[in-house]
């Protein structure tokens, strides 16, 4: 196995992905990530020199519209699914 995923890498990925992993989950993630990366590494066999990365299959770029408001005030609807709300705002635990 060419890719060795360290504990530090998993901790870092956990921060990026905003996930809190148990010790068992971390071990599994190390194994899974290394296996997938080994597999993905075969893309390295292909010479992609001068190839433009393709994010969209059609040659469409920016789709513009006139800068006018088309939607109304939807606050009450938006808050309907809030786990907690207060005074028309989302309520969250302490931020610091």
């Amino acid at each position: 196995m060419a890719n060795v995923i360290t504990d530090e890498t998993i901790d870092y990925v956990g921060i990026l992905a905003k996930l809190e992993l148990s010790a068992e989950e971390k071990e599994q993630a190390k194994k899974d990530l290394a296996e997938m990366l080994d597999y993905i590494d075969q893309l390295g066999e292909l010479d992609t020199t001068g190839v433009e990365p393709m994010s969209h299959v059609f040659p469409v770029h920016n789709v513009f519209r006139e800068d006018v408001v088309t939607n109304g005030d939807d606050r009450d609807n938006i808050l309907k699914n809030a786990p907690e709300e207060k005074d028309g705002m989302f309520l969250v635990p302490n931020t610091f």
Partner: peptide, 30 residues
């Protein structure tokens, strides 16, 4: 879902973006 979010976060992370994500977009073009 966690497995895929972690792999996705990794291939987009600084230092690996070009080697994985950008490479995949180039192969997609091929």
């Amino acid at each position: 879902v966690k497995r895929r979010i972690m792999l996705g976060s990794f291939v987009l992370s600084s230092g690996y973006y070009d080697a994985y994500y950008l490479k995949a977009l180039k192969v997609k073009a091929l």
